[in-house]
Design a protein around this nucleic acid. Structure first.
Length: 280
DNA sequence: AATACAGCCTGGACGC
DNA sequence: TGCGTCCAGGCTGTAT
């Protein structure tokens, strides 16, 4: 499931595949909800003729800056994938291709999304959406001191807070569990009980976990079509996960049994010994 | 302010 | 083998 490293991998792959500079000749919307709130007709009309100029990322959003000043914001949610390849025929139509862009070099950019949670938003004012997000987790100007100050402003379960995109942008369920384990912080610990030193350690660990995952092209968990892929390739980070998806297995650090609980309605994996410092 | 929960989806895992 | 049931998860909107 795409979090920051997976989204950044998609951005890198689309850049490398030469999407920047390509002009959209035609847009086909197979699932109207994917491009809401615009209608399929408006979405298509407003994008046809524009050139993909730059591709960036903020949090889990992909930000395509288009010629003429508009922006296409893409959120992959659970199963969204971009595939930039040769044009296909209708015979090969995939029922999960939600939107297709025909490009001026004969290729086709497909937005494939099995579970259909993903969104493509065309807007002239991307800041209205991106401005609601907290600092990007990898933004170097987001300092440990600022992170500490922001933790102090809330009295929330630390994992719930890290998952909140308006607090810090880019983290999801997998990398939160991993970073809390490495730092030895219980996922239910109250955010304002984390001291300056521990806050610094947590932010540095989060970044280290994300950077490592990025080097491995992210985490693919399963084998089916809902599995994360970019440029047709799996992410190779799964074997490095220490607690996520390992409930019932021994902790790699102390040998205690990894537990699974629910925090903010998400499956949460942790070691009850290494992360025992639970303070309400 | 923090939390809970339904809703959006559907493949895949699991149990019988 | 085949069928039914439930789970996974990001995010939004609503309720408590």
């Amino acid at each position: 499931m795409p979090e920051l490293p997976e989204v950044q991998t998609v951005v890198n792959d689309l850049r490398e595949a030469g999407l920047p500079g390509r002009r959209i000749l035609a847009v086909r919307v197979n699932r109207p909800q994917t491009v809401a709130p615009l209608s399929p007709t408006d979405f298509s009309r407003r994008l046809e003729g524009r050139i993909f100029e730059e591709i960036g990322r903020y949090g889990k959003y992909i930000h395509f800056k288009m010629s003429g000043g508009g922006s296409l914001l893409a959120h992959l949610r659970m199963t969204g994938q971009f595939d930039l390849g040769r044009p296909g025929t209708d015979d090969e139509a995939d029922p999960h291709d939600r939107v297709m862009f025909s490009l001026d070099d004969g290729r086709r950019l497909r937005f494939h999304d099995t579970r259909a949670f993903g969104r493509l938003i065309f807007t002239g004012h991307p800041d209205e959406i991106l401005g609601r997000l907290g600092p990007d987790a990898l933004d170097a100007s987001f300092s440990p001191e600022l992170f500490y100050q922001r933790l102090q402003k809330h009295r929330r379960q630390i994992k719930a807070l890290l998952l909140d995109q308006s607090f810090i942008a880019g983290l999801g369920n997998i990398y939160c569990d991993e970073a809390l384990f490495v730092t030895g912080i219980h996922p239910l610990r109250c955010s304002n009980t984390i001291d300056r030193q521990k806050a610094r350690e947590l932010l540095e660990t989060l970044r280290s976990v994300l950077q490592t995952a990025l080097k491995n092209r992210g985490t693919s968990l399963g084998e089916g079509e809902t599995n994360y892929l970019s440029a047709g390739r799996r992410g190779e980070n799964r074997s490095l996960l220490k607690v996520y998806g390992r409930a019932g297995e021994p902790c790699p650090r102390c040998g205690a049994t990894i537990e699974k609980i629910y925090v903010a309605q998400r499956g949460t994996h942790f070691c009850p010994v290494c992360q025992a410092d639970y303070t309400k």
